[in-house]
């Protein structure tokens, strides 16, 4: 573990990215305490303060460092709360997709035969068309709200985990230590959970990190298209969409600042994921 961290530390870009992820996640977690305004409390909002540029001092005495949006919400507060929602969706979808995908992938590798063919062909099919398309259709069918959105994101993403877990498990199953476990013989459950699964985790952790970022981007896309969460609790994608109509009139901050927040978050998570992948891949070891 210490050795792992020492190797990680050698890449300063990855260290900065990790720091950014930590700062952004804690900012999102602590939003109710650090945000100057509760953007969900309509009583707090004053339409007189709407669409004001960054640095504007509002009627209630707040300094709106990043300006305000069309409802008079403080953008900084809205972004913090938006991050919260985006991260919630991303992590929830990533975790559920990881659990389902890993189960299916290892089941396919373990069962073989018809079950393997059935699972992996469905996975192949799903990987062959865009995740956003599937998510769009599902959200349209299931309706809006957090749970339908997570279901849509999971359905769009579990296949990546299933393919990764299947590949890793098939590779591990060939190895002598699995044969040694069968030769003892250890119970099948123990072979899977104590021997095969832990050795499949490194690639899954990497895919998991990247897929959280993808889930956040996907959620933002859906929200931008108006199919995500209800506008009363805007996520980052919704904030960007809300400001979009004001882009041409010069009030760019309404869209641009949430956009920057989204980009920073996704890039940081991806850089961390890339570094983890490099470290878990022995062939890239120096």
């Amino acid at each position: 573990m210490t050795a792992f961290w020492n190797e990680y530390r050698e890449n300063w870009v990855a260290v900065i990215a990790l720091a950014v992820v930590v700062v952004v996640v804690s900012a999102a977690l602590l939003a109710p305490w650090i945000a100057p305004q509760d953007p969900y409390d309509l009583a707090n909002l004053d339409l007189m303060d709407a669409r004001r540029p960054p640095g504007f001092v509002g009627s209630n005495g707040y300094v709106h460092w990043l300006g305000t949006d069309a409802q008079g919400r403080d953008l900084f507060s809205a972004i913090l709360y938006g991050l919260r929602i985006s991260l919630q969706m991303g992590v929830a979808a990533g975790a559920v997709a990881l659990a389902i995908g890993t189960t299916l992938g290892i089941l396919a590798a373990q069962a073989g035969g018809k079950i393997e063919q059935a699972i992996m062909r469905v996975v192949d099919l799903q990987l062959s068309f865009p995740a956003i398309l599937l998510a769009l259709v599902l959200v349209a069918v299931l309706g809006q709200g957090k749970v339908p959105l997570v279901i849509a994101l999971v359905t769009a993403q579990y296949a990546y985990f299933a393919r990764t877990a299947y590949g890793a498990a098939t590779a591990e199953r060939q190895k002598d230590y699995v044969e040694a476990a069968r030769a003892t013989p250890l119970p099948g459950r123990r072979v899977v959970f104590r021997h095969i699964l832990p050795n499949c985790l490194p690639p899954l952790i990497v895919v998991g990190t990247v897929q959280v970022a993808n889930a956040i981007a996907l959620e933002a896309t859906l929200s931008f298209l108006g199919l995500g969460l209800p506008p009363t609790e805007p996520s980052l994608g919704m904030l960007i969409a809300n400001g979009f109509q004001y882009m041409m009139s010069g009030r760019t901050w309404i869209s641009v600042y949430p956009g920057i927040a989204l980009i920073i978050l996704i890039v940081a998570i991806n850089v961390v994921g890339d570094q983890l992948r490099d470290q878990f891949n022995p062939r890239l070891r120096r």
């Binding site: 230590y177 030769a183 021997h195 050795n199």
Partner: peptide, 15 residues
């Protein structure tokens, strides 16, 4: 019981 050829492969690295 069996003893395998390659002791680098026949022991699970995480156990």
């Amino acid at each position: 019981q069996t003893v395998f050829q390659d002791p680098y492969a026949s022991l699970n690295p995480r156990i």
